[in-house]
Every structure is written in C-alpha cells, then in structure tokens.
Design a protein around this nucleic acid. Structure first.
Lengths: 240, 240
DNA sequence: CGGTCAGTTGACAATATTCAACCGACGTGG
DNA sequence: CCACGTCGGTTGAATATTGTCAACTGACCG
C-alpha cells in the first residue's frame, strides 16, 4: 500500500503554543518536537514580514539564512534562461526552508500571500545543530520530508495527466489546510508553473471538474471538493 | 548564473583508497570526507552483491538499512496503481541511498547493472550519526545533494521538451561518468521512465540527435556526444 | 473613465502517445 | 545445428493531449 504524501506533512500548528523561555539542553521530547514550538529556533531567529509577491531570496545568492514560516504561503521556484519557470514547491506554516547543498540558494523564494517568517542565520543554526540533538532530529526530519515530497512531485510531473495533476493538487491542498471549502492562495499561473502545465490548461481542467460535478466553485479561488474527488484521487495512487 | 547540477555530484572515487582501520572520533578532515572512503561507514556495513535487475528493497517495506554503492548502477522508482512507473533517480558509486522520512522505504530500488553495495543497518548508522560529527556532515550533505538533484528533475519534467530532456540526460550522464564515448547502462524503457516519456519517444529523439549530427551511435548503448550538444545543453539552462 | 490583471473559453497547431510492424541478437529446446 | 520465441530497439501512421494565440469578461484601482 502506497499513497502520495500531501504537499506538506507539517500542518499548521494551530493551538500549539508551549514555549519554554530558558534554553535547556534537551528542549523537548522526541515525539513532541515540532519546528513551530521549538524554543531553540525561536531564540535564534528574528521575525520578519514580507508582502504579497515580495522576494525573500534569490536563486544562486549566497545562502545566509534558514527560514521558518509562521503564517502565510511561500513559493520556491527555478527558472530556465528563456523565462520558463518551475515552482519546486509551495511552503506552509511550520515548514523550514532554504536547504542547500553548496552554500547558495538553489531556488528563488517569494511570498504568495503576506507572510511572517522566522529568519535564522545559518552559522547560528548550524552551530546549534551540533550542540542540540533534538533540533538535529527536527532538522533532518524536515529535510527528509522535503525530499519525499519532491519525489512525489517527480511522479506527478512524470506520469500524471493534466486532470490527475490538478485533482491531486487540490486534494493535497485540502489535506494540508484541513479545510474543505478550499481557499486557493495562489493564482492559476502559479498552479500551472507548479504542475508543469499552462495556465489555460489549469483553467480548463478546473472548468471540466466543475462541469462534471467533482468540485464546486464558490468563488474563483474558493473550491468545494465533492467526496468522489477526494476518494478517486486517493485510490488512484495506491500501488497494486 | 545558474546551471543544472549533474545527476550525481559524487563522482566515482577512483584511486581514493585511504583507509583507517581503527576508528577515531574525528575520522577525517571536513573537506576530505567522502562516503567512499569513510572508515565509519566501512566498519558499520557489510558488502553485498546484487545481480542485474535484482530488487534491493521494495517501496513501503520497513526501512532496515542504508546503502552505499561501491560499484554498478541502481534505480529507485515509484509506481502508480495502474502500473505507470517513475524512476526517481539513478544512483552511482559513492552515493548513499534509502533516505526516508517515516521509517518505510519510499521507493523500490533495483540493480540496473550488477552492483556491489555496502549495507548499513539503520540503528547503527543513526547511532554513529549522534557520536560522529564528520559522518553527520557527510550524511547531511548527501541528503541535501539528493534534494537538489530531485529539484533539478522537477524542473526537467515540468518544463523541458522531449529533446531537451534527453539531451540533458545524456550530458549529465557524461558529466557523472567523465567519459565521452558514453556507455548507457540502462534500457530505453528505463530512460523513458526516468524522463517522463515513452520508450518510443526516447528512441525517436536519439535517432533525431544522431541525424542532426549531435551524437554518434557507436553501438546501441554507446554514444559519442559532439561538442555542440554539450555546449547547447549547458547554455540552455543558464538563467537570464 | 481607462488601464491592468486574473481568469475563461475557442480555434488551431505542436508535441508526444498509442498501436503496430519490423529488425537483429540471443538463448533454448527439439 | 537450426527453429523459435523473447527481448530491446527502431520506425511509421493515426490519435490524443496539451500548448499557443487570441478574444473576451469582470474586478479592481488610480
């Protein structure tokens, strides 16, 4: 049995507000550890706010910081020389981002909505990783999840049709936000650049899903998923 | 300036055979550390050989071990319920694989050629990670590189044409192996399942590249890249 | 009021897939 | 030893899917 992981497995922490002001060596037990409430990250970082469409960092710039989203949605993307854009992923509250393997950012990060992020200088975080085992596990787990989700995305882009991609996207988004009348924070262009399609194809697929009664458009960016869509999209990805 | 990373950034270690039999706390200096010569990994793992097309582990099985390739080529892949297959990546000597975020393998791994791998039990490796800082950096670096390469793959699958995908694949493979009359270890089906195409399309593109003088087919699986292909494939991916 | 932006839809074109035939190499069993 | 089946690969013809170009709408803003 195998089913695709949602876009993000770190759900918004919601009511989770257990903060410890003094910094102990072991800040939390293994299973309760989340990036959202981690006191080490909280102490290392400074809160910063970005406006809609503002750039947080540029691809190939020297990677000075890690970022933890407190609220809002961010997109990470790459470009080809002729302007073609591919969004690597959308990033949601609780996600730690800006991983790199060579000291330079490998994506450009932009605010899809107004966002508030914790900006954590790399040297400090890297030092804390050495001294704080539970933070290390948290960091590693975050990285492994991002890898898993990116491999999911490779499967989606390599082997799914336009209808399957959009359906999978919508159900994943519903899983992350946990809301069924689903509020799309991003434009059709963003969705297209994430799914490897054109904005026209995305628009047509959404119209088709509406026509077939699989979704309901309460507003341009407010979508109600019918139960069948959720079911079909889940069963579709179960290995034989 | 941005250019796509090759499929693997860990080149075969070749002549690198510095082994230390006794296990020191710091086994090597930061910049000389490679998974190929790391004495800690060497001590933890046992060497195992797999035949052509033999399965190393199955997707969703409990993840018991990590693997380090000493020789040969491995493919990691995922399946949809109807049999569609997507190869997440090809893995080459020096690569550490079987990362997971939930304790189960997220891909099936199979030997593309006869391979010899170091099988490293997870509990032991995880324990050594805690106690050995340089191994930790090595492990983290490996994971970050895999993420980077997978994001490259997302860009390739999402935004490149068939010709671009195959050209990029061939040049990347030449970069990894460092050999120009390039020996393809995998079949057309494998290439297709890696590039999100059909085997016919891969075959047609290769024929076309041959017709256009960009490659020379010395044998079905032996390809000589003309300089122009290498150049064009590089310049194609440089950001504006 | 005019301009811009996000989105939808239609007509047509490009691209990749599907289905099928065919080839040569290889290995096996009569 | 040869016939036969299988496998990997190539190629052609027809088809399906998605992209391109363009027109149009409604919302929003100065």
């Amino acid at each position: 049995m195998y089913s695709l992981a949602p876009l993000s497995q770190l759900k918004p922490a919601g009511a989770q507000t257990i903060f410890i002001e003094k910094l102990p060596a072991k800040c939390c037990t293994l299973d309760k550890c989340t990036s959202m409430h981690c006191p080490v990250l909280r102490q290392l970082g400074t809160l910063k706010v970005y406006n809609h469409n503002e750039t947080i960092f540029w691809e190939s710039d020297k990677a000075a910081s890690f970022f933890l989203i407190k609220s809002g949605v961010v997109r990470e993307c790459r470009m080809l020389s002729d302007g073609r854009r591919q969004i690597s992923r959308f990033i949601f509250p609780g996600d730690l981002f800006a991983h790199t393997d060579n000291g330079n950012y490998s994506n450009t990060a932009e605010a899809v909505t107004p966002v508030s992020v914790l900006v954590i200088p790399r040297p400090q975080l890297e030092q804390s990783l050495e001294s704080t085992p539970c933070l290390r596990r948290l960091f590693l787990k975050n990285l492994q999840q991002e890898l898993h989700q990116t491999q999911d995305q490779v499967l989606v882009l390599g082997r799914m049709s336009a209808v399957e991609r959009v359906s999978h996207f919508l159900t994943s988004l519903a899983d992350i936000t946990g809301a069924n009348p689903l509020e799309l924070p991003m434009t059709r262009v963003d969705i297209a650049d994430y799914l490897g399609l054109t904005l026209e194809t995305v628009s047509r697929v959404i119209s088709r899903l509406k026509r077939e009664g699989k979704i309901e458009l309460l507003d341009t960016n407010k979508i109600l998923l019918s139960a069948p869509l959720k079911l079909s999209a889940n069963s579709q990805h179960v290995a034989a």
